[in-house]
Design a protein around this nucleic acid. Structure first.
Lengths: 202, 202
DNA sequence: TGCTTATATGGACTCAGAGTTCATTAACTG
DNA sequence: CAGTTAATGAACTCTGAGTCCATATAAGCA
């Protein structure tokens, strides 16, 4: 049995509790656990224990381990998705890809994102949620910035911005998920340079 | 109890059996299961049952679910890694990336590879094996072909072939793993074109 | 304000699969 | 051909996913 000290109002019994309160507890515990121990150690059971909540409650609100992890992640890192728009597409893309590389390599977020994408490969609910809440919006922001650059005449009109996204951010994911080569800010710079200048001779 | 018909020499008892025989049974069952039911349904228990082998035996030879899956996959698809070298880097890259896209989209191999990469994010043994036996060798072949193109003067000497790999194959993995946009052969063509010509105006 | 009702809750359960132990028995060696 | 070695598989433990249902409490109503 657990001793309960005065001042910790962690009374837990049967009955109904305010949904928002429980939801906040769960998301807090999920985010903490995720950033601390990574995706591999992330189980619904452990989140339930950490949050002082029963598994049933969690299953009621989140269809799978992965979607809970995704919510917990966003709850923990409120990531700013703002895309800079200085009018110089080269500078903007470089800044944005560099920032992405820093996020992936300099914080636990990189391993978490890798774990989420990994889990999504065998968890359809998570893949859907990930696309809708993470990759989709990020992709749209980048595409919009590139469309503006096309309007300004800085990018060839016949280039498909959606494909450029794959060749910039997709290349970073590649080095994150299959780390044969290092993921550095210099790498980010050269991704942009290769695409803007071209690497062919002629 | 299982009835044993004449002609099926599936006698299974205690005792030692030729290691190669058992190994072949296991890999065959693993490959079949993987291509038929995908990574999600791939468990050591099921492979053991399908192969008529005990779990202990499998655990003795393969450190994890993932590494068994990887071996099973290669046992099943003996993938040809040959890289064409016609002397025209644009044609060679286009052909190779197109073939890769076809493999990923036209066969069950695509979902299997996705599952393996996914599983590798929480299975260090598998990540190591995947890099050594799959992504590493493939990457090397492509880099070598591009180095030859640089010697022939078809590719700028200051371009890093390792980065180009990320911007071609990495872009395909991106659309495989986070399918926000379709993975088509036209996409493959445009990846190559973007890099060779450049998309900047200036 | 006090009572009723609807419903979120959590303990206990089942089920599946990972990984380990150990007696057994076939394969190898001289 | 007999002794030694070592792979084998049945049974076990342990962990975690997901479900069922009695219960306590929040929300609604008079």
């Amino acid at each position: 049995m657990e001793q309960r000290t005065e001042g910790t109002p962690v009374r837990r019994g049967r009955g109904r509790r305010p949904a928002d309160e429980v939801r906040a507890d769960v998301l807090g515990a999920a985010g903490t656990l995720l950033l601390r121990d990574g995706m591999a150690a992330f189980t619904i059971e452990r989140v339930a224990q950490e949050a002082g909540v029963s598994k049933t409650t969690i299953h009621k609100w989140w269809p799978s381990r992965g979607t809970l992890a995704l919510d917990g992640y966003f709850h923990a890192v409120e990531s700013a998705l703002a895309f800079p728009d200085t009018g110089d597409i080269r500078a903007d893309l470089t800044a944005q890809v560099r920032a992405f590389v820093r996020l992936l390599t300099g914080t636990p977020a990189g391993r978490v994102i890798a774990g989420l994408i990994g889990q999504a490969q065998t968890d359809p609910d998570l893949l859907t949620a990930l696309r809708r809440r993470y990759s989709g919006p990020r992709r749209e922001l980048a595409v919009a910035a590139m469309r503006r650059a096309q309007d300004r005449g800085q990018l060839r009109a016949d280039a498909d911005p959606r494909i450029l996204v794959d060749q910039l951010w997709g290349a970073c994911y590649h080095r994150l998920l299959l780390p044969d080569e290092p993921l550095t800010e210099e790498f980010a710079d050269r991704l942009v340079a290769n695409l803007l200048h071209g690497v062919g001779t002629g």
